[in-house]
Amino acid sequence: MRVSAGERLANYAILIGFAAFAIWPIATIVLSALGPDDAGTSGAGVLGLHPENFAEAWRVGHFGQYLRTSLVVSVVTVLVSVVLSILSGYALGALRVPGATPVFYLFLLGIMMPSEAIIVPLYYDLRTVGLTDTIWAVILPQIAQSVAFGTFWMRAFFRSSSRALVEAARLDGAGPWRTLWSVLVPLARPAIVTLTVLVFMWTWNEFLIPLVMVVSEGLRTAPLGLAFFQGQYTQGFTLLAAGACIVATPIVILYVFLQRHFIAGMLEGAVRE
């Protein structure tokens, strides 16, 4: 398509203007985090920047502890829900167990259902069995949510994968278990990576479930810790900004390396709904 030089220039202007708008709030916190501490005495800094703010925020805001909790919660949720999703997606998509369609619709219900709908009874029932204020109260509901999406995601993959290949494996004497793990799962690697990345991000960023389920400071996840830090630390913005950067960084790093999986996953996952 041929476009005039003027139009091209205008396009670049729009592109840059829009990207600047998208980056503005993020740049604000990154620059504040690197600036001189507006609350306390600041060191000399390095080339006018103050990376020591991050160390200070880490110490004052207990972010090490929050990141550790988030990491445990996210890794356990990802591992368990991805394995369970592969199994149930295989049952619904490739093995086609009787009643697969109604079960699939039940899982779809879970994808659409907001956490707000179930969080209240879940809290009181988990309190009755003594699970609130444990890491399990944060992990188990999120595994359930991730299995709903994951089953749907893996089912779609297994349905589209080659029937002939499964047949060939079976004729070679492979049972359904071996067919799954040595034929289908290696083929499904990109789909599984996307699922892993999405579940990790959703779990890391989740706010309502840990907010409701956890009282102990030691069990706060990173976003929850940041929200409390904002409420308590009112001396200035620098350390809060540094804390916000600390909370966001792990996912942003993942995003930089695996952005195709993030974007494709979020768009396709949505389209398939």
């Binding site: 592109l15 829009f18 990207a19 998208a22 980056i23 709030p25 993020i26 604000t28 916190i29 504040s32 991000m201 890391w204 960023n205 706010f207 990173a222 976003p223 929850l224 940041l226 929200a227 904002q230 913005f237 809060l240 900004a241 916000a244 909370v247 966001a248 996912i251 942003v252 993942l254 995003y255 952005q259 993030f262 974007i263 979020m266």
Partner: peptide, 22 residues
């Protein structure tokens, strides 16, 4: 451009809220 404008989607809402409050 795609990478930049999609970035807000992967950042925790609490972080976004802190930035916009500022």
């Amino acid at each position: 451009f795609r990478t930049v404008v999609f970035l807000p989607q992967v950042i925790a809402m609490v972080v976004i809220a802190v930035a916009w409050r500022r």
